[in-house]
């Protein structure tokens, strides 16, 4: 099945959840965040879609004024087709339903995106930082991240201003 057919199948079952946009790539589908858990269960269990492998969850900061996004890459071992799903979040309070119960690897991938961007995955059993220490301040991969001055008494030096890359 190609992307258009998969999109049609999702729109059939959950009308109004797919957002159309021009700068989407070939295999990308943008969804609204509200019915995400039900849509995720549908794409895993429907025998025509059967996306049983969650390949990657990427968090993205699209810029200072724009939103945060989570992108999920799925793959089906049986039908050998792929899809990429984009969900945008509001910058002040980014949150979306967690899919760790459906694909077990969602647990650690969502913890990592939470650690780097601060996106809260509701329904996650144990959402805490995974790479940075538990008492780290700030969300490192956001574009407006300012590092902290001291960590347990060790000084973290600030970078000198560069002239920019050629």
């Amino acid at each position: 099945m190609n992307t258009a057919e998969i999109k049609a199948a999702i729109m059939d079952q959950f009308p109004g959840s797919v957002l159309e946009s021009e700068d989407l790539g070939e295999s990308q589908v943008e969804l609204k965040a509200d019915q995400w858990f039900e849509i995720a269960t549908f794409i895993k269990e429907n025998p025509n879609l059967s996306f049983d492998q969650l390949e990657c969850i990427t968090g993205i900061d699209l810029g200072e004024e724009a939103s945060l996004q989570t992108r999920y890459n799925f793959h089906s071992m049986e039908h050998r087709h792929k899809i990429e799903i984009l969900i945008s979040h509001d910058r002040k309070e980014p949150k979306v339903a967690s899919i760790e119960k459906i694909w077990r690897i969602g647990d650690w991938f969502e913890r990592e995106t939470y650690d780097m961007f601060g996106i809260v995955y509701e329904g996650h059993s144990d959402l805490r930082r995974i790479l940075c220490p538990d008492d780290w301040e700030g969300w490192p991969l956001r574009k407006d991240y300012e590092g902290q001055e001291l960590y347990h008494g060790i000084v973290i030096p600030k970078m000198k201003e560069e002239d920019g890359w050629e």
Binding site: C132, P140, P157
Partner: peptide, 10 residues
């Protein structure tokens, strides 16, 4: 941001 710039700091 998470790297210690030299172990001689500790």
């Amino acid at each position: 941001y998470h790297v210690l710039k030299g172990v001689d700091l500790v």
